[in-house]
């Protein structure tokens, strides 16, 4: 049992446990915190995969920004009370997810499973090839690979900046983010009173209440005037 295998198992347990708690817990704030734990575990997996840049990006983007957005949204929609976690179709969805995982597991498990061979071979035949196929070619684990992996970030930066490769897509995603920022600020802006239905009905209720109070005050004054006039006339008489 190597160290990295132990680390992988710990990360798996943390990740899947936290994800299971995210989708079943009653308290939305706790769900956001479990989501953060799962993001941390995913960052750990990225480190195991020697994609260190993406581990740091996961911390920066997901935990440092998206999780905070989730927590703010939970606060702003008063979701801090306990909610019923699952809706009416939860049972069917659970069964369907389990079946889907079983199918994926059949295909992702390495070769000795006969079913996978048969199905994949059948697909290859359908596409007009031969039944037998090549398995994934893995790169060897030697110094060349280590060198290539070590300057992966540099090559990614070069590819993202080069317009012949991914530069145009980078500009497009910048535009997407800009539109997203402006759009979300506009959609979630604070509206003036009586602009939203809830505030409108509240404003109407307030107006009715004020009108009622005013009419009561007027009635009291009207009632007091004759009494005052009576008192004045009584005094006047004396």
């Amino acid at each position: 049992m190597e160290v990295s295998q132990i680390v992988f198992l710990i990360l798996t347990v943390t990740l899947l446990g936290a994800a299971a708690l995210v989708v079943t817990t009653k308290n939305l704030f706790h769900a956001a915190l479990y989501l953060i734990v799962s993001f941390f575990s995913v960052a750990g997996m990225y480190v195991l995969l020697e994609a260190g840049f993406f581990a740091a990006a996961q911390l920066l983007v997901y935990i440092g920004a998206i999780s905070i957005l989730f927590i703010f949204a939970v606060m702003l929609t008063r979701g801090t009370a306990l909610i019923t976690p699952l809706n009416s179709q939860a049972g069917a969805v659970g069964v369907m997810s389990a079946i889907m995982f079983a199918i994926l597991a059949v295909f992702l498990w390495p070769a000795p499973i006969r079913l996978q061979e048969v199905i994949l071979g059948g697909f290859r035949l359908l596409r007009g090839g031969t039944y037998g196929g090549e398995p994934w070619q893995f790169v060897p684990n030697n110094a060349d690979t280590a060198a290539v992996v070590n300057n992966a970030t540099l090559r990614l930066g070069a590819a993202l900046g080069d317009f012949a490769q991914y530069g145009a897509l980078l500009l497009l995603s910048g535009a997407l983010l800009l539109v997203g920022v402006i759009g979300s600020i506009w959609v979630a802006r604070e509206r003036k009173i009586a602009d939203t239905r809830a505030d409108r009905s509240e404003a109407a209720a307030d107006a009715r209440h004020e009108a009622q109070l005013e009419s009561e005050a007027e009635a009291r004054e009207a009632a007091a005037l004759p009494a005052g006039a009576h008192a004045a006339s009584v005094e006047g008489q004396h």
Binding site: G52, F53, A56, A57, L59, G64, A65
Partner: peptide, 15 residues
């Protein structure tokens, strides 16, 4: 990615 790591840690500490 040393500098980027420092920024990422600073960002994650807001939680």
């Amino acid at each position: 990615i040393g500098v980027f790591y420092i920024i990422a840690i600073g960002s994650a500490s807001t939680i």
